[in-house]
Design a protein around this nucleic acid. Structure first.
Length: 712
RNA sequence: GCGAAAGUGGCGGAAUUGGCAGACGCGCUGGACUUAGGAUCCAGUGGCCCAAAGCCGUGUGGGUUCGAGUCCCACCUUUCGCACCA
């Protein structure tokens, strides 16, 4: 009889006592580094989380069976908002809540039978770890890659903090769903835009990354080739510079549009009679969220001024438009309404001229709308020197002319913006800077690191960062002049913590330096990284960026941290929503006529990602107590191809248990054991020979298949 | 709107290079064992047909091929990503 609940604890205990997964990184041998994305210690893990770790463990054990020792560490992404919110709710402190969760989750990993090298464990909330966040920040500051700047930033009114662009989804806070506001604030940034070209080019070297992730990063970086062109503005006695990806259409530029935020605007409208009205309109647009701004449709105001199109020499009107983004390009565009949908809508709205300058090679252009042709199927018309050239050639030629005539130059622009890393929250790494009235911004000297997060802080949930009210933390002498000064009270985005942790795992206890460069160069890059697709942009882009900055400090020789990336699919399960759209616990659901009800209220069933908030999680504990961890592991590996989404089924779990029971019985039978009743044992020896031969053949076939198609 | 991926039994899903469609598991049906079992074992299970023979069958419609789930064209549906980025 197969009794996993007796077998498994015995072996799990032996693995733990023998520390089977611990390795000496200094010992000679072939290196292999496997890594699962380290989790946020939120408390209980469910079977959906389990897939990530079970897949990683299956691969790790596969390598072990081939005799390859792998570095396979685990740690905790332990700073962050949920701990702080839990502390406010429970009137406690984020630290004990976090540490208790870590203990709980470690036990769950052990019970899953997952082997990690716990001697390498790190937790980002410990000073011995976040000290190096601060050191890294100061290194970036010295190199001009960390800076304090004023910019329109995303403010989440619910979480009372600013957010990175990457953390805003559909105009809402990625975490809490509140509508994000634009605020002009002075904040700390990392200059990731400095690395935009290298981050984009590096994607081509990542042969073993999913195409989907590379594409998402490429779109996020948003590399565009085009040209900067100066348009003279007589009223200003100077020029306004525009950026365009289609300089070949410049003969069709019949007006110019500036973002309301463009710095040239005040001078342009200074003498206007309707200046007050325009300024009011500008203020209105600026106060809108990105979402509201877009939903408002195309709106604009005429400045009353004109610019000279340098190719047609016509005077074209300069407008302000709510659809021109201040942060992209130069915050000014030349409008070609014949060939750009947005420009076309604007021209229609305000009765501005439309001039066709591209002709399809075959067929007629559509009437009553803009049409865009980017390839050889279009040729330039009404375009002077470039008439008759196919579009790609026309772009090349017109850039040459622009440069010859000193009107501007061919340029590359990126959509990517600098990474906003300050957060007005407590449970994070303190930013190691000091404000001195005399000396200005002063970095904390390296020998005073870490700037320790004070623990004697009350959590009331009232407005503001509790750190700012902690006098002993805030009031410090200036490291340069010793006068009374104040500490920065912002903390770092937790994505800073996770942007280099994979380097720390090699030498996690080093108190002298961030890591041992020789050993890191030997073990990194990570050979196999496993985690969810939700980090396709955020974590993976930041990690690639920070790795490059550390490379440029001369500490490591590689630029890409993860050679091979795998995104496991999510586990889904049915969840139930009431009429207001709130999730209902399955315990409250009653079934009538095959439909889910809560009392008389009809509920809607929906198969969605397994998560605590949707109340559709399956905790592993009970399942393991009944069927064993191997049952969950086999079922999880068997449910669907690992990269695909998979629906959890409680019946399917029983099937995996039966399957393992049959394997067990076969093993016992082959060893002449007790699983076969005595009255059926006649003739067994002969049967054994044929079964054993057949099994060896089958095992060989299955093993080679698994190696070739499943693991490799 | 732009980009990407995917549509195969009652269900999850196999089918590696164009070569027996539906592996394996769940569920279901029948049987064995005999009531300690959400147990175990055996057989069956795409549809039409009492059965056999046969015919039909991988979202829809065309095409290439001796041969198509797989390749080509058009369309439909779903999911995901980006979204005023000039």
């Amino acid at each position: 009889m197969y009794r996993p609940t007796e077998i498994e604890p015995k072996w799990q205990q032996r693995w733990a006592e023998a520390k089977v997964a611990e390795i000496d990184v200094a010992a000679p041998g072939q290196k292999l580094y496997m890594l699962n994305m380290f989790p946020y210690p939120s408390g209980d893990l469910h079977v959906g989380h389990g897939r990530n770790y079970i897949l990683g463990d299956a691969l790790y054990r596969y390598f072990r069976m081939q005799g390859r020792a792998a570095l396979n560490p685990m740690g905790w992404d332990a700073f962050g908002l949920p701990a702080e919110n839990a502390a406010i709710k429970n009137r406690t402190h984020p630290r004990p809540w976090t540490l208790a969760n870590i203990e709980r989750m470690k036990k769950q990993f052990a019970r899953w039978g997952i082997l990690y090298d716990w001697s390498k464990e790190i937790a980002s909330c410990e000073p011995e770890y976040y000290k190096w966040n601060q050191w890294l920040f100061l290194q970036l500051y010295k190199r001009g890659l960390a800076y304090r700047g004023t910019a329109p930033v995303n403010w989440c009114p619910q979480d009372q903090t600013v957010l990175a662009n990457e953390q805003v989804v559909d105009g809402r806070c990625e975490r809490c769903g509140a509508l994000v506001e634009q605020r002009e604030l002075s904040q700390w940034f990392f200059r990731i835009t400095e690395y935009a070209d290298r981050l984009d080019a590096g994607l081509d070297t990542l042969e073993h990354w999913p195409e989907k992730v590379k594409l998402m990063q490429r779109n996020w970086i948003g590399r565009s080739l085009g040209a900067d062109v100066d348009f003279q503005v007589p009223a200003l006695g100077g020029a306004i510079r525009i950026f365009t990806t289609r300089p070949d259409t410049i003969y069709g530029a019949t007006f110019m549009v500036l973002a309301p935020e463009n710095p040239a605007v005040p001078a342009l409208i200074a003498d206007r009679e309707d200046r007050d009205e325009i300024e009011q309109w500008i203020t209105g647009v600026r106060n809108q969220s990105a979402l509201e701004r877009q939903e408002a449709g195309k709106e604009g105001r005429f400045t009353g001024k004109t610019a000279i199109n340098p190719f047609t020499n016509e005077e074209i009107p300069i407008w302000l438009g709510n659809f021109v983004l201040p942060q992209y390009g130069t915050g000014a565009i030349m409008s070609v309404p014949a060939h750009d949908q947005r420009d076309f809508e604007f021209a229609q709205q305000y009765g501005l001229p439309i001039r066709q300058v591209i002709k399809p090679v075959s067929g007629d252009p559509p009437v009553g709308e803009a049409f865009t042709i980017k390839d050889e199927t279009g040729v330039a018309v009404n375009s002077g020197d470039i008439d008759g050239l196919p579009v790609p050639k026309a772009i090349e030629r017109i850039i040459e002319i622009i440069e010859e005539r000193g009107l501007g130059k061919g340029t590359v622009r990126y959509r990517l913006r600098d990474w906003l890393i300050s957060r007005q929250r407590y449970w994070g790494t303190p930013i190691p800077m000091i404000y001195c009235d005399a000396c200005g911004l002063v970095p904390v000297p390296d020998d005073q690191l870490p700037v320790t997060l004070p623990l004697d802080v009350p959590f009331t949930g009232r407005e503001g960062n509790p750190l700012a009210k902690h006098d002993a933390f805030v009031n410090v002498p200036c490291p340069q002049c010793n006068a009374a000064a104040k500490r920065e009270t912002d903390t770092m985005d937790t994505f800073v913590d996770s942007s280099w942790y994979f380097l720390r795992f090699v030498t996690p206890r080093d108190g002298e330096k961030i890591f041992d460069p020789a050993l890191v160069d030997r073990w990194l890059p990570v050979d196999q990284y496993i985690g969810g697709i939700e980090h396709a942009i955020l974590h993976l882009l930041y990690a690639r960026f920070i790795t490059r900055t550390i490379h440029d400090m001369g500490l490591i020789s590689f630029e890409e941290p993860f050679t091979r990336l795998f995104n496991q699919g999510v586990i889904t399960k049915e969840g139930y929503k009431d009429e207001r759209g709130a999730w209902v616990s399955p315990a409250e659901v009653q079934w009538k006529d095959g439909k889910p009800y809560r009392g008389d209220e009809l509920l809607t069933a929906e198969v969605t990602k397994m998560s605590k908030s949707r109340l559709n999680v399956v905790p592993p504990d009970e399942l393991i107590a009944r069927y064993g961890a191997d049952t969950e592991r086999v079922y999880t590996l068997f449910i669907a191809p690992p990269e695909k989404e998979a629906a959890w089924s409680d019946e399917g779990v029983v099937g995996a248990y039966r399957f393992l029971g049959r394997v067990w019985n076969m093993g016992v039978a082959l060893s002449g054991g007790e699983a076969i009743p005595p009255d059926r044992q006649a003739g067994l020896p002969d049967l054994h020979q044929s079964i054993i031969r057949k099994m060896h053949q089958t095992i060989d076939a299955v093993t080679s298949r698994i190696e070739r198609f499943e693991f490799n």
